[in-house]
């Protein structure tokens, strides 16, 4: 990890621990938790889009597998929550691998089409065969670790944001490693990367599986926090929502995943004041931000910051 990212991680950690001290408002903390859950999914998709150059329209599918598998295992089969989460992630990873092998061996955006279908299939499965069908089911066990069960909103806030810090550390390390450099190399010349002995397909499959791991973890955390699941939250709409988070946050920097999740999660809450015009405002804001911030928020802020900073240095030199 480079120095800027290490500082950013440190700042994030401080912020995460300060935030619940500044507010005891459960509503704000709850929004914070949902931002966190969405961030985990968005970080995975940012890596997939920004570094492997692939689009997934089925992250809701992995999110759904994470939520439903973990919920069912812990509720109906009495598995400890930690174990059911790990199993759910494993199931999602296997599904991702099986999906990626045929679609990533072909050139082009076959993965986008395959994941679109996959997401819909998962949605139909949980709608038809999931406990409670379309109306869903409750009484899912709360998250517990070493015999301690999490109950309060603050505890969940900490749990989810600590997960994000760990995920960010892992992801930043990965992208700063030889593997991350190889992924960036593929963008510049796929042919040269191949002739240096790098199995591009295998690398892309691994990144896709990583995005599925993050999404299913987020789904599982969601299930054990809300303790109630229904199929409506796992439709194509959620996949598109995550895609929007990533595009608005910026695909060239994985901090963009968090920034996008903050904006897309908060926006409907802020727009509530506009009553029936909220959907109109929502669309307008998204359209404008795509028109004027093509790279996304985080890369744009970094550009502005660097330019100001560089101009200062140049002035000092002159």
């Amino acid at each position: 990890m480079n120095r800027e990212n290490a500082i950013a991680i440190l700042l994030l950690t401080i912020l995460v621990f300060l935030f619940p001290q500044l507010t005891t408002d459960n509503y704000i903390l709850t929004v914070g938790i949902f931002i966190g859950i969405n961030s985990i999914v968005a970080i995975g998709l940012t890596i997939l889009m920004g570094y492997a150059g692939q689009i997934s329209l089925g992250q809701a599918g992995f999110y759904g597998i994470g939520a439903y598998v973990s919920a069912i295992l812990s509720l109906s089969y009495g598995l400890p929550v930690m174990l059911s989460i790990i199993t759910a992630i494993a199931v999602a990873s296997i599904a991702a691998t099986l999906l990626a092998i045929p679609s990533l061996r072909l050139k082009g955006h076959y993965l986008a089409v395959a994941t679109l279908g996959f997401g819909e299939i998962i949605h139909i499965i949980i709608n038809e065969w999931g406990p409670g069908g379309p109306s869903g089911f409750g009484d899912i066990p709360h998250f517990s670790i070493f015999g301690y069960t999490l109950q309060s909103t603050v505890e969940y806030f900490y749990l989810i944001w600590i997960c994000i810090i760990l995920i960010m550390i892992f992801s930043l390390n990965l992208l700063n490693s030889m593997t991350g450099k190889a992924l960036r190399a593929i963008h510049d010349s796929e042919i040269a990367t191949l002739t240096l002995g790098i199995n591009i397909t295998f690398l892309k499959i691994k990144v896709f599986v990583l995005s599925a791991v993050y999404a299913s973890l987020a789904g599982a955390l969601y299930a054990h926090y809300v303790t109630f699941l229904s199929p409506s939250g796992f439709s194509l709409f959620y996949s598109v929502l995550v895609l929007m988070m990533v595009v608005i946050g910026g695909i060239s920097n994985i901090w963009g995943g968090i920034a996008g999740a903050i904006i897309i999660t908060i926006l409907p809450e802020v727009l509530r004041g506009f009553k029936e015009f909220d959907i109109l405002m929502y669309g307008l804001i998204l359209t404008l931000s795509l028109l004027f911030m093509r790279k996304g928020i985080v890369p744009m802020v970094i550009d502005v910051f660097r330019n100001k900073f560089l101009i200062k240095i140049r002035k000092n030199d002159a």
């Binding site: 390390n173 490693s177 991350g180 691994k206």
Partner: peptide, 14 residues
């Protein structure tokens, strides 16, 4: 290169 998971756990990069 060190493999995917090890790379994620290694803070020192290359």
């Amino acid at each position: 290169h060190k493999g995917f998971i090890l790379s994620g756990l290694n803070f020192r990069g290359v």
